[in-house]
């Protein structure tokens, strides 16, 4: 669905560059509680996903931490559509020892997400290398990636 695939595009780049048995690159293609089982057991998790901020900032990169999403924690909302922060809060309350201690979210502003398209918009596409570099920096791989 066009720009909605930006997380997959970034993950594909990362999967090609990172070769470390302690780091897994995953295509989750799911949300909220569906993610919970995928991230359980890891020390650190980096989420890369599209975000529609409503401001039309296509290609804009937002580095967020869970604290930035604290206002969205909402235990009375519908559980299956449960947002990420609420799912993590649920995980922490009921399976604390399985939850990662550190979580970083790279959210990339997107435009076209409701029509079938294999290509992203130009602005979203241009942001991919920068997001890849930011993630590599985040995991301390920036130097090794450059040497490649």
């Amino acid at each position: 669905m066009g720009d909605d695939g930006i997380g997959v595009h970034v993950a594909q780049e990362l999967a090609e560059r990172i070769n470390d048995e302690n780091i897994d690159v995953m295509y989750a293609n799911t949300s909220g509680l569906g993610l919970l089982e995928s991230i359980a057991g890891y020390d650190k998790v980096i989420i890369i996903d599209a975000i529609d901020t409503g401001s039309g900032d296509i290609g804009g990169i937002y580095k967020l931490r869970l604290e930035d999403l604290v206002n969205t924690v909402n235990q009375t909302s519908w559980p299956h559509g449960m947002n990420f922060a609420t799912a993590i809060e649920f995980g922490r309350r009921f399976a604390a020892n399985q939850m990662p201690t550190e979580m970083v979210i790279f959210a990339i502003g997107v435009g076209q997400v409701t029509e079938f398209a294999e290509e992203m918009t130009a602005k979203a596409t241009e942001s991919v290398p920068e997001v890849v570099n930011l993630v590599l920096e985040e995991i301390g791989w920036a130097h090794r990636a450059l040497l490649r």
Binding site: M1, D4, S31, D49, A50, I51, D52, T53, G54, L69, N71, T72, N74, S77, W78, G81, N83, F84, A85, V110, V113
Partner: peptide
């Protein structure tokens, strides 16, 4: 269907 909107909540 997928939505990616801040604040990420869909009210009833």
């Amino acid at each position: 269907c997928g939505t990616h909107a801040l604040p990420g909540q869909m009210p009833l």
